[in-house]
Each structure stands twice: as C-alpha cells, then as structure tokens.
Amino acid sequence: MKVVPSRSSEWVRPVTPQKPASAIIEIESVSQVFQTSARKDHVALSDISLAIDEGAFVSILGPSGCGKSTLLYVVGGFVSPTSGSAKIRGRTIMGPGPDRGPVFQEFALFPWKTVLGNVMYGPRQQGVRTTEAEAQSRALIEMVGLKGYENFYPKELSGGMKQRVALARTLAYHPEVLLMDEPFGALDAHTRTRLQNDLLNIWERDRKTVLFVTHSVDEAVFLSDKVVMMSKSPGRIREVIDIDLPRPRRRSELLLDPRYQKYVVDIERMFDETDPVGSPS
C-alpha cells in the first residue's frame, strides 16, 4: 500500500483498498513522464495517490514545475497519465467531460462570442433550450458581478472580468467538480483578492468539489479545506494539511486570526524546504 504523508485527514487521504464511499475523485499511483529530449525524461508526477471527497475545497500547492497543473489536467482528462489512473465516482477518466469543469489561468474564453454567448455555450451544447439557457446564463453573469456586460466581447474586458466570465461559463454546465488551474495567477493583487472573496461566496452556496492549483500559500490557506503540498523533481505529494478554520471565512477576520497566520507561516516554511533556491517562474 502506498503511504502518503498525511495529518489526520478526513477530506484527503491515501487511497486504501477499501475505497471510502464519499470520495468523488481518486487518483491512483499516477505518474507522468515527459520526454524533453532524446536522452532525458522529465518526471512531472511520480506515483501520486490522492482521494478527494465530495464537496471539499482542495488546493494543490507547490513551486513552479512540480507538476501540480499536470495533475489537474490528468483529472480533467486532457492529459493521459504515463501510468496509474484517475477516477471520478469510481469510473476511470478517459477524457474530458462535462462532469469536470476547468477554469484556466489563461481564461480561454471564446473571443468571437459575447459574455452571454460564452456562458450559454455549455448549456446549449448540452441541449438546453435557448430561452432557458439564456435565463440561467444571465443569472450566472449577475452572480459573478458582471450584470450589464452581457453583450461585451472578451477583448473589451479586463483580466479580472474575463476570469469571472470563465467561471460563469464553467458553472453554467453544472460540472460536479471545478478544476481551477492557477485561475488568479495572471491578475494583480487587488483583483486577485476580490476574486478570491467572490469565489468563496459562490462556493459556499452549493459547495461544489473544487480542485484548485496555486503557488500562493495564503490563497491556498484562505480558500481550502485541505492543502496538498507538492515537491518538485520529481513531482510528489509532500504533505497534506487540514485547514481547520471556520466558514464562512471573511478575509478581514481571517488575516487577524492567529490560526490562519500559523498555517501560512508553517506552510511557507515547508515551501522553502521543498524549493530552497526558489524556482524560475
């Protein structure tokens, strides 16, 4: 049996032969090797096992190049692992599907569609009637704070607004799991903070399972139930940390909370041990 270092974890734990019924995603000894040149292989992920429970907000934290995004792409079905497998509700993931909704750092909006057109795209593809899809999409656009921008093209929006559209577009087709790949990584500090707050508010309404990749320690602590700390070369799980902070979380309260501060300091120290010289990003 694989032993993954873990501190008493109810949300994230090593996969045991008796699979816990509540795990929605199970990653079983996934390895991912990229051939960078004829002689040298880059081991992006080495024997990763992880189970994620339904309704959990789990962050994957690690330095650049530790394979954390690759792990997310494996769950998304965008990349097939060199060995091992990922499962959703017990079914092996063979490719992308509407049960897992990605949100990328690059937004990846459809630039030829308006905000409304982008958000409606998923529901329309799923066969939802136009009028119904439009009503749902307008409600989502309002929820992410973009009421009045329905007919704007992505080109006319700021980075923060684009990421709001991307989130609404993904929520629109009701994925069971949100896969967020450094979604706020390209945004300025202020925008980032506002989006973190808004994401938490949205998440606290329906508590969808979220897998959230980030390299920011305080972002991971602020948002998550669990932080999965990865180390690089090869990409391994170093530690799984429960974030035992009350919800709903308010930034102003949390920043003054000694427990929050301790999590951040502890994890930052671990981060430094994992990546002593800092990594080029």
Partner: peptide, 9 residues
C-alpha cells in the same frame, strides 16, 4: 486550453 474548454463541454 480553448479546445480543452470545448472538450469539457
């Protein structure tokens, strides 16, 4: 990633 987004839909 635009194609991935489409594939996920």
């Amino acid at each position: 990633k635009m194609l991935w987004s489409g594939a996920a839909m």
